[in-house]
C-alpha cells in the first residue's frame, strides 16, 4: 500500500523568542515492512535542516533559528510503501544480546513501580508462553482493562498514572505493555508512527504509538494494544526506542519568556501507484507553504509542560 504523508508542526509564541534549537524524529524508516520513496522537510522561517542517525537507528532532523521569531512551521512530507506483515527487523548473531539489552530493562517512562509490580502479578501465568500468544494476551488485557481517553493523561504521564486512572492513550497503553513484556523476560520496545485510521473507528488522530516484541525466531514483531490488533500495512513506522522519550516527535529549547503553543496536523492518505508520479512532482515543486500564511492559529494552550527555568529564560519546547 502506498501512503502520502504530511506532518506539519506549528509553534507559536506569545512574544518573540530567539535561539530555537529543535530536533525532530519524523522520518519514516525503511525496513522489512516499509520503504520510504520520497522524504523531505521544510522550515518557515527558511532554515536549512540537518540529519543524523541516533543510537537506535532513527533519523533525527535538526534545525535552529537564532534570530527573533514568533512562529515556526516545520513540515515533513513523505511517500511510503507499506507491507501487510507485522515483522519489521531482525537482530542477528552475537550482536543480538547487545542490541536487545536496553529493551529488557525498565526505562524512565517504563518503571517497575510498586503499583506496576502488583498489576503484573496477573500475567505471571503466561510468562513462558510463545511470544505471539503472549503478545495477543497482553494486548487484549490492556485493550479491555483501560479506557481510551485523550484527556486522562499527558505526554509525560507515567505507567502509574495510567494504572491509577484506568484510562489513557496509545502512548500509555504501549508503555504498560512494554513494561509487562519486559517483566516477563520478552524484549520490548516503543514504536512511534502513524496509523491510517479508516480501518479503526475509535480515533482519528493519525499520530500513533505501539509496541514491538522480540521473538527468537522471527525478530521484532509489531502489535498495537490501542486497537488490540497486529500491526498491519496501515501502520507506518517512524522510530523505535526504550519508551516515548527516546522517540518523541519533537524536542527543543528556545530563549525567551513567551508562552508556547504547538499545533500538529497530520495528513495521511493512501494513493494509487499511478498517483505516485503526480505526488512526487507536487512535493518537489511546492516551495510555498500556503497553510502558513492563511491558517488561523488557535489561542495558546494552557501551559502544562512548559517551565520557566531560569533568569536566562531558556525553555523547553513542549513535546507532542
Amino acid at each position: 500500500m502506498l501512503f502520502e504523508l504530511k506532518h506539519e508542526t506549528l509553534f507559536e509564541y506569545s512574544e518573540p523568542v530567539t535561539d530555537s534549537m529543535m530536533e525532530f524524529r519524523l522520518t519514516p524508516k525503511t525496513d522489512a515492512k516499509q520503504k520510504v520513496i520520497i522524504h523531505q522537510s521544510r522550515v518557515v522561517p527558511a532554515r536549512s535542516t540537518r540529519r543524523y542517525l541516533d543510537g537506535w537507528g532513527n533519523t533525527v532532523t535538526t534545525v535552529n533559528i537564532p534570530f527573533s521569531h514568533q512562529k515556526v512551521e516545520v513540515v515533513f512530507e513523505s511517500v511510503v510503501e507499506c507491507d501487510e506483515g507485522s515483522r519489521t527487523e531482525n537482530e542477528q548473531g552475537s550482536a543480538r544480546d547487545l542490541a536487545l539489552y536496553d529493551f529488557k530493562q525498565p526505562s524512565r517512562l517504563v518503571e517497575w513501580t510498586p503499583l506496576f509490580r502488583e498489576f503484573v502479578q496477573d500475567f505471571e501465568s503466561i510468562r513462558d508462553h510463545p511470544t505471539r500468544e503472549l503478545a495477543e494476551k497482553l494486548s487484549e488485557a490492556i485493550h479491555t482493562g483501560f479506557r481510551y481517553d485523550t484527556k486522562a493523561t499527558t505526554a509525560s504521564s507515567t505507567i502509574d498514572d495510567l494504572l491509577r486512572g484506568r484510562a489513557g492513550v496509545c502512548q500509555d497503553f504501549s508503555h504498560l505493555m512494554i513494561g509487562v513484556a519486559r517483566w516477563l523476560g520478552v524484549p520490548a520496545r516503543y514504536v512511534s508512527g502513524y496509523v491510517y485510521s479508516d480501518r479503526y473507528q475509535e480515533q482519528t488522530v493519525a499520530s500513533h504509538a505501539w509496541v514491538e516484541l522480540f521473538d527468537e525466531s522471527s525478530g521484532w514483531i509489531g502489535i498495537d494494544p490501542t486497537h488490540n490488533d497486529w500491526v498491519r500495512e496501515s501502520h507506518l513506522r517512524l522510530g523505535v526506542g526504550r519508551d516515548y522519550q527516546d522517540v518523541s516527535p519533537n524536542r527543543g529549547l528556545y530563549r525567551g519568556s513567551a508562552q508556547e503553543s504547538v499545533e500538529v496536523r497530520v495528513f495521511l492518505r493512501p494513493i494509487d501507484p499511478v498517483e505516485l508520479e503526480q505526488s512526487t512532482k507536487r512535493l518537489f515543486t511546492s516551495a510555498q507553504l500556503t497553510a502558513y500564511a492563511t491558517r488561523q492559529f488557535r489561542k495558546p494552550a494552557p501551559v502544562s509542560i512548559l517551565q520557566a527555568i531560569t533568569a536566562a529564560q531558556q525553555q523547553q519546547q513542549q513535546q507532542q
Binding site: M21, R50, Y52, T62, R251, L253, I309, T310, A312, Q316
Partner: peptide, 20 residues
C-alpha cells in the same frame, strides 16, 4: 540540554550535534 538533561542551564544547546 537538547541531548542530555533538559533542565541544564550550564550547557550549550546544540553543542553535541556540532561535535557530532
Amino acid at each position: 540540554p537538547l541531548i542530555f538533561r533538559p533542565d541544564s542551564v550550564l550547557g550549550v544547546p546544540g553543542i553535541v550535534n556540532a561535535y557530532r
